[in-house]
């Protein structure tokens, strides 16, 4: 690992100032991704700003909104009573990610800041537009079994690795950030970016901006939910594809649906058209298949990941069936 200086500021302002004024500085919370990247030489910050002593850990219900502090641990959030009862999709997604050891370290804000696990991004001897802009993409024309089928570009076909973020996308969360110019709220859908021709940017945070929390509005998705994660082994692996499915069913009619996927795009991928197709329909296998077919229409595959289209189709249908038959 490269040498770096370290500060542990006592205030939010001091932490933000430290990163805003220094291009080579990075925030560190759980460190589970950042230290991994630093050991591989992918990221080489000259200063780490440890934010763990800032008061951003609380998980609380404010009226109809769940407020999650950016430093809440993934394990705490997954086991939180309100999350389990009112936002079970989020709890399921969290428990599908990583291992208990990592969930005990990883924070909510850090989870959102995870970088792709594309092997070309990690291998500093290979070209990668995300790691080293304008150096090319090793995955296009390389081994691209794990890569995107939605929203990719000629610059980058990497996928976002998070499970938690797929649930947050489905639940229409809002990201709270504070920076040198004050605080702002970013709808979850607008937080992460598609690669376009600037794949080095994973999200829309400005310089020195720090995630302070996430808010999830109250919703009707407390019962008919399911997070399906398909991977190369039974547990503790990144998704080939994952599906967050949430249904509001009354009298055998779907009043509304939420669907999002992981492992298929540069950001958590909402399936808006499929959601619309389910609204007002009966929760039947045929209707789920129909919606899943709509979802995969825009898929574009590469030589090694063509299987992801069929896998997505079946996974969306299966997740909806499991959600509906709780």
């Amino acid at each position: 690992m490269n040498q770096f200086s370290y500060i542990r500021p006592a205030s939010l302002k001091a932490a933000i100032d430290a990163v805003a004024k220094d291009n080579s500085a990075r925030f560190i919370a759980g460190g589970t991704n950042l230290l991994d990247l630093m050991k591989s030489g992918v990221t080489t910050p000259e200063k780490l700003v440890d934010i763990n002593r800032l008061p951003l850990k609380e998980i609380q219900v404010n009226g109809a909104t769940l407020h999650i502090g950016a430093l809440a641990l993934n394990s705490e959030l997954a086991a939180h009573d309100t999350v389990k009862s009112q936002y079970p999709l989020l709890s399921q997604a969290l428990l599908a990610g990583a291992s208990q050891q990592l969930r005990n370290m990883a924070t909510v804000g850090g989870n959102m800041m995870q970088r792709t696990r594309c092997s070309y991004f990690y291998d500093t001897t290979m070209p990668c537009n995300k790691r080293n802009p304008n150096s090319g993409c090793g995955a296009i024309g390389g081994i691209n079994r794990m890569h995107a089928i939605f929203g990719a570009s000629d610059s980058c076909i990497a996928v976002h690795p998070s499970d938690m973020c797929v649930a947050l996308a489905a639940l229409d969360a809002t990201v709270l950030v504070t920076g040198p110019k004050g605080s702002r709220r970013i709808p979850f859908h607008d937080f992460h970016r598609l690669p376009g021709n600037t794949p080095q940017l994973d999200n829309n945070l400005g310089k020195g901006e720090l995630i302070t929390g996430v808010e999830i509005p109250a919703n009707d998705y407390t019962k008919y939910v399911y997070y399906l994660k398909v991977r190369d082994r039974a547990s503790y692996a990144f998704a080939l594809v994952s599906v967050a499915a949430a249904l509001d069913i009354h009298n055998n009619e779907i009043r509304s649906a939420r669907l999002a996927m992981g492992g298929v795009a540069h950001k958590p991928w909402r399936l808006y058209e499929a959601e619309k197709a389910l609204t007002g329909k009966a929760p039947t296998e045929e209707n789920f298949r129909y919606a899943a077919n709509i979802a995969i229409q825009s898929a574009k595959t590469y030589p090694h990941n063509a299987f992801k289209t069929g896998l997505s189709l079946n996974s969306i249908q299966t997740a909806l069936l499991k959600a509906a038959t709780v």
């Binding site: 589970t32 780490l48 440890d50």
Partner: peptide, 11 residues
Amino acid sequence: RINSCLTLAVM
């Protein structure tokens, strides 16, 4: 329980 390889001692 945590993975001691992915945290800095000073943290």
